[in-house]
């Protein structure tokens, strides 16, 4: 029971991170119908910027943790958003209206490019980062097993909840959110009604990248190691999460992320850690076989 609870906490933490990345995939898919393959790399860049920012703050002698955290989040979000914007501008915008597979290949190319770009600039070795937040609550103590909820896990879960709330409000209430929903439904019609479609798409990438950057900061603090290859695995999981929840659906992305995180945590705890990725994909296949449009996705009616 205690073990189960601990795995639940770990799984939810992991799921929150996947969910944040998955939001970027699902938003982009909803609006332009393409798999943004480079999104995982954008997340990786966010993590690297976070490492650099933490190190710089250490040099500058900032030791007050909330301040350091705020600065790092701000820096990572700003610069990563710039990367998200540029990726769209360089690799996807020229291909609007091209055959369906062209942007996908361009995105794979961008993913390979960014991976090697970071590897060349920052080195291939793993970057270790000293823990920023230590300690935690001890929730339960029984049978020589204590259930820990570390402060960092608290931070990740709380920050995710806050971000989701802000994000949902933004989509539901602000003019930008309205423009996004309009573009998602019908880009041509939205353009006719005066929505600046290109700008909306750009902002979608910026927001997606910003969320990925937050996820990158969280991972940096949670695991304490970053390398240039983390983007691929996390991107794959997050995309799986987005598909699992029903791609294009924002609550679906969060739910999918949570499920993938839980499956991973429980499978590696109770069965075997080597096959945790296999478990996540098997769940995906099972869900898609029985619910082809994902858990919360609307079934799409194909018209002639």
């Amino acid at each position: 029971m205690e073990y189960f609870l601990q795995q639940l906490i770990n799984g939810v933490t992991l799921g929150a991170i996947y969910g944040l990345i998955a939001l970027g995939y699902t938003m982009v898919y909803g609006i332009i119908g393409m798999i943004n393959f480079a999104h995982g790399e954008v997340y990786m860049i966010g993590a690297f910027i976070a490492v650099t920012a933490f190190t710089a703050l250490g040099v500058a002698g900032v030791t007050f943790v909330p301040l350091a955290l705020a600065v790092v989040l701000l820096v990572a979000v700003t610069f990563t958003a710039a990367y998200g914007w540029t990726v769209e501008r360089v690799a996807y915008r020229p291909l609007r209206g091209a055959p369906r597979l062209a942007p996908l290949i361009s995105a794979i190319g961008m993913s390979i490019f960014l991976q090697n770009y970071v590897q060349l600039l920052q080195g291939a070795r793993v970057k270790p980062l000293a823990p920023v937040i230590r300690g935690g609550f001890e929730l339960l103590h029984a049978n020589q097993f204590s259930v820990q909820l570390s402060y960092i896990q608290c931070f990740i879960i709380l920050a995710t909840v806050v971000l989701i709330a802000v994000f949902t409000l933004m989509i539901a209430r602000t003019p930008l959110g309205r423009a996004q929903r309009a573009c998602e439904q019908d880009r041509t019609m939205a353009a006719l009604l005066g929505v600046d479609v290109d700008r909306t798409i750009s902002l979608t990438f910026v927001i997606g990248a910003a969320l990925a950057a937050v996820a990158g900061v969280m991972v940096t603090m949670y695991y304490g190691v970053v390398d240039f290859f983390i983007g691929f695995q996390a991107g794959l999981k997050a995309f799986t999460a987005a598909v699992l929840g029903g791609i294009g659906s924002l609550p679906g992305a969060m739910l999918g992320g949570l499920l993938i995180g839980l499956v991973e945590a429980f499978y590696s705890a109770y069965f075997s850690i080597e096959y945790k990725d296999v478990a996540a994909f098997s769940i995906l296949v099972l869900v898609l076989v029985f619910r082809p449009s994902g858990l919360l996705g609307r079934p799409e009616v194909e018209k002639v």
């Binding site: 690297f48 920012a53 710089a56 610069f79 710039a82 540029t86």
Partner: peptide, 24 residues
Amino acid sequence: FVTLVLALPLVGLRTVDQGGALVL
């Protein structure tokens, strides 16, 4: 300008692992 923004954190700064601690 965009290049400047992009290059600042990843090109301009590099973290190097020195004996388990990162230096800039």
